[in-house]
């Protein structure tokens, strides 16, 4: 049982990690237009944070919409 709980918890940590990899990929492509230095400016930082929130909003809205249509 402890092994099962350990695997379960590793599995959900891994899913979170993979979501963060995917979101960073998507939001970096959309928010960081060019590399002129190694800092994120205020606009890029704001954009990344909005991107994550809007992506999750969209995801949740679509899942709810699918559930309601069944």
């Amino acid at each position: 049982k402890e092994i099962a709980a350990f695997l379960e918890s590793e599995n959900s940590k891994q899913k979170v990690q993979m979501s963060i990899h995917q979101l960073t990929n998507t939001c970096f492509k959309n928010c960081v237009s060019s590399i002129t230095d190694s800092n994120l400016n205020a606009q890029e930082e704001e954009c990344l944070s909005s991107c994550v929130n809007k992506f999750l909003d969209t995801n949740i809205r679509l899942v709810k919409g699918l559930q309601n249509s069944q």
Binding site: F28, C31, L40
Partner: peptide
């Protein structure tokens, strides 16, 4: 460096 900073910003927001 910029990608790793973005990774941190995304993690925090997520």
């Amino acid at each position: 460096t910029k990608y790793m900073k973005s990774w941190n910003a995304v993690s925090k927001a997520y």
